[in-house]
Design a binder for these strands. Structure first.
Lengths: 221, 221, 221, 221
DNA sequence: TATGAATGAGTGTTCATTCAT
DNA sequence: AATGAATGAACACTCATTCAT
């Protein structure tokens, strides 16, 4: 028992190690130059071994996306416990995003991969014969948040929740995409974060019910 | 005279024919699977002949982007003549975009190519040591429009014009990108157009000065 | 009559013009990068027109060799008229070579072509099912010269004339080949010429009859 | 241990096998027609496999030159141990060359490759920012030999060592080049070897100090 | 379990040559 | 006589994937 458990744990660790190598390479040289060869040699294993853990390159890339979605979802999952509502929740969401964005390059990697694979975006289209439960849950969490704000009278009552959710996710995606084209040093610089916040603020105002004062909608608490 | 004219026209037609084949292939199987070989065989000419009209694959792809930018710019160019100001101009812009979007798959193709080439997006970042005059002019036109609306008191006075322009273009880009993932039949369906319009409407509201009534900001005249 | 004559002359001029363009290109960028395309565009005619004057690229290159051989032969042809004998004739030969070498790049071009085509060297092998009468005549002239020197008792009586001729031509060839690898400015510089002369001097001493004084064999008069 | 050893040996054998195929092809159809494709198909492996052993065509060609230079150098390396001096050493050098030349087509191949790559010849120019230690050492060995002969009073004291070395190597090169144009059967025939020896003899006489008797300079002991 | 070795199916690009006009 | 247009056959090189050991 102990043995088989250790085996599995080790296997999972290997998997993770390979994924990390792949991510690092994407960050440095872009997805389009990522090869199984380079992943293997960075992980100091053979190409064939990579195929023991991932059935194909596509599989590996999907996994990367999945992982990041999981991470973001982990952040969002804590929502209900916070008990935050309305704009406070929106602010929390934004902070979670910025943190995730600033702390790691996870998002950058994912969006590089996604635009390379056309796989995440199809998730965003919300039709969702998508397999990833994490992305589904992220979408649901955001949807719930928007509905909440509508219920509280902050967002326009005729705001289509689906449209709004999609727009929000698109915005997140675009921000990352643009950031990924910047030199690594300034990606998470205060100036960039501010610009991103301004953009998010515009969207939130766009969601707002007619007549709501801007001060109420302020993202930065 | 007549002869050399005809020759030139025929040459231009060939060029266009090749470009059209390339675009169709992009639409069907994505840029990443586009090869000079496949273009040639679709155009029923030899690979070498393609090189008679385009010095490289990159050249060909650039041309595709350029063409679409030119088309969009052609629409926008008529602005000053219309004498439209403020929201009327915004509505005109939107109609131009929808028309272009609905009439052809031009935009879909371009944004696929762009994300493949990282060349257009760097234009969007507005720093623009880009060579294409069309893209520059599109940016300038949109900027001017936003400034106008600020001057007229429709948009918030503290709205950063650059941020807003970038957001608008990003929106255009995202819409196309998402549309490109839909089945071809429904891409330009009324439902999709409506969804797009709603999204654009949200952004415009986000740009608006505090206290402006929603009815004033209405996109659909 | 006058007309057809002019026609022919014009045709010959065109041929020459094309050859000159080819030579210039060889000098600048090397034989290996010489293309029919580049020749045509330098000559400001179409590629197809080049084929009106030369049946193939090989034909054109052969012609270049032929021309230079003709030039060298023209120099050598004047020998009998000079009435020079023995070492005086050898000195004359050397001066002719150096002049030809210094005045033009003809030799450089030829040896680039030759090593590219393996065609000249096979001529040097003296077996001569070679078609070029010029090369044959050059060989004969040199052979005669060597025989002369043997008869006069300057060169060793058991010196094999064929071996010696071949060695001499090889030497000429090698010198040019090495020169062609130098930057254009110093190819015909005094230092290079001196080095070449020294080498030639060594060979001549090698040819000499036992006991002949070096001063007699002096190349530089 | 035994396994990894065998692996390495097999790998080296493969490398050699590929090189041999390449050499054979060069011998038969010339370097200029040598393609990675043809090498692969002769070696009965795929093109991609060739790239497993050589990172590029250039790499492969360099290796061929290197190998032959190594072989020649191996011969020369034994010099100091022989304790031979002066003419005895020259005779030894000549015998080494002839043996190498007669035993294999190595030299023929190398000089074809060299004139194709312009890399060896630049070595011959003695300036030698060349990386190959073998060629450097060959040059040094020959230089030392010539200096020796000058010191012993066999070669002319004013003989420029560099000029002489260059001439010697050029001679070796030319001989091979000419031999490579002969039908394979007679390349190393006694007649050809004799002719080569005669030529070498001429050069050595050319190097000699004034007044030295020919019998002393005799190459064939 | 791990891997070294192998490869098929491409990739973009070049160029001597041909031919209808 | 001249040429614009076309092309076939090559070319060096890459990479995801497979498989015997």
């Amino acid at each position: 028992m102990g043995i088989s458990e250790r085996r599995e744990r080790e296997k999972a660790e290997r998997r993770t190690a390979i994924l990390n190598c792949a991510k690092e390479l994407i960050l440095v040289q872009g997805v389009e130059h990522l090869s199984m060869e380079s992943i293997a040699s960075k992980a100091e294993i053979s190409k064939a071994t990579v195929y023991l853990y991932f059935s194909s390159k596509e599989d590996l890339l999907k996994e990367i996306c999945e992982e990041a979605a999981k991470l973001f979802h982990e952040h969002l999952k804590t929502f209900p416990q916070t008990g935050l509502k309305g704009m406070a929740a929106i602010r929390y969401l934004w902070r979670a995003y910025v943190e995730l964005f600033g702390q790691s390059n996870e998002m950058i990697i994912v969006f590089q991969v996604r635009s390379f694979m056309n796989s995440w975006m199809s998730a965003i289209s919300l039709e969702s014969e998508d397999r990833s439960p994490y992305i589904d849950n992220i979408l649901l969490a955001i949807k719930a948040l928007i509905d909440e704000c509508k219920a509280e009278g902050i967002f326009a009552p005729n705001l289509d929740t689906t449209t709004a959710t999609r727009l929000l996710l698109s915005l997140f995606s675009i921000m990352v995409e643009q950031a990924s084209r910047l030199p690594q040093e300034i990606r998470a610089s205060p100036a960039i974060i501010e610009e991103m916040t301004n953009t998010f603020q515009i969207i939130i105002r766009g969601f707002a019910r007619e007549g709501i004062e801007h001060s109420v909608l302020n993202i930065m608490g």
